[in-house]
Simulated assay, not measured.
Amino acid sequence: MKLQHPLFLTVLIASSLTLTACSSSPTGRQQVLLFSGNDMSQLGAQSFEELKKQEKINTDAKTNQYVQCVTSAITTQLGPQPDFDQWEVVVFDSDQVNAFALPGGKIGVYTGLLNVAKNQDQLATVIGHEIGHVIAQHSNERLSRSQLANAGLELTNIAMSGTQYQGVAMAGLGLGVQYGVLMPYGRAQESESDIIGLRLMAESGFDPYQSVELWKNMAKASGGNQPPELLSTHPSHATRIDDLKAEIAQLPATNTKRQSCTL
């Protein structure tokens, strides 16, 4: 019996994995998810515990109450989650203008963010965005793509071994992996989380127009040092603002009750 060409096997294996793990995000975007929600939740919880050991945790009662108030307004709107019991929020003492959310409902907010997110609505924009990553399973998607990319690189290297195309093929795949597959939260995911987060914060009683003001503040805080959009994991500030304005115009009147979280 004649063996199939290794490159054909590479394509066949990758195609089989993709077809068996195909899913859709909350906005309808096609995803490949190879890992269970429970596995991702455990991974997120482990990472969060390690981070809490490394970072200084803020203990100011007023600051924590404020962040918890904004976060709870959004997570309550979401209801029970299939892969974890409750959301956990920790405020870290750091000048970083940042926040994150991990699988398993683990949310971290750095105090430096509160200097740029000037009010509850702007903070809700960021927290809604980060929660969007969780409910859209972006970490699972990123890890799954990484797994497929690693398998593809290894199999392709074998398939091309000893041929004149090996160097060209690996160089091309390396560039594609670096700027297309393995970058943390690609632009499609970031833009999707912007939309999911905007909807979440608006439904939770926050002012969606403040999302635009938040990203104007972010642009000022970055000092114009943002890398070219093509090589960035995030959309440019201008792109983000334009996309948010377009989405705001389409938002239904969902929640007339205004939240009241103060620092």
Rank of each mutant, 00 (worst) to 15 (best):
N38K: 14
A117V: 01
E55W: 09
P208R: 06
E154Y: 06
A202R: 05
K2G: 08
L231E: 03
F35K: 00
G105M: 08
H133M: 02
I135K: 07
N157Q: 15
H234L: 06
N150Y: 05
Q30K: 15
S94Q: 07
I196T: 01
S36K: 06
P26S: 05
D85Q: 15
V181Q: 13
L143D: 06
I13P: 01
G162K: 03
L244P: 04
T233V: 04
K118P: 05
I158M: 12
L9A: 01
S36Q: 06
F92V: 04
H5G: 00
N58L: 10
H234F: 08
D60Y: 03
V181E: 12
D207L: 08
A149K: 02
G205W: 11
C69Q: 10
Q68P: 13
A219Y: 08
I195L: 12
W87E: 00
T27Q: 09
V67E: 00
T63D: 13
T10Y: 01
I131H: 05
C261L: 11
Q189I: 00
A136H: 10
F206C: 12
Q96G: 10
A249H: 12
Q189F: 01
L231A: 10
N38Y: 12
S144F: 13
L7C: 04
Y185H: 10
Q46M: 07
E154N: 04
L9M: 02
R29L: 01
V134Y: 12
S211C: 03
Q86S: 15
L182D: 08
L230D: 11
Q137W: 15
L12D: 08
T233S: 14
Q259G: 11
L113S: 03
T75G: 11
Q4S: 08
Q189W: 01
T262Q: 15
Q46L: 07
L113R: 03
G172D: 00
D207A: 09
G205S: 12
N140D: 15
L153W: 02
T254R: 06
F35L: 05
L17C: 09
K53Q: 13
G176S: 07
M40W: 03
L43Y: 13
E203L: 07
N115T: 14
G44I: 14
A246F: 12
S260Q: 14
A149V: 02
N217V: 04
A238D: 13
E49R: 14
R240V: 09
S24A: 13
K216I: 11
G223L: 10
R142T: 03
T20E: 05
K56T: 13
C69E: 11
P208L: 03
G205I: 13
F92N: 02
A188H: 05
N38F: 13
Q65R: 04
Q120L: 03
I57Y: 05
G186I: 02
V90G: 03
S232N: 12
M40V: 01
E190R: 02
T75N: 11
Q54E: 14
Q42G: 15
T239D: 11
L214Q: 01
V177W: 04
M218Y: 06
Q65K: 05
D39I: 09
D83P: 12
A61C: 04
G186K: 02
E50K: 15
G37E: 06
H234R: 06
A188V: 04
T125L: 04
Q46F: 02
A219I: 07
M1Q: 14
T163E: 00
L51T: 15
V67R: 00
P6A: 04
A151V: 10
T156N: 01
Q250R: 15
P252H: 13
A45G: 08
D121M: 10
T59M: 12
Y66D: 01
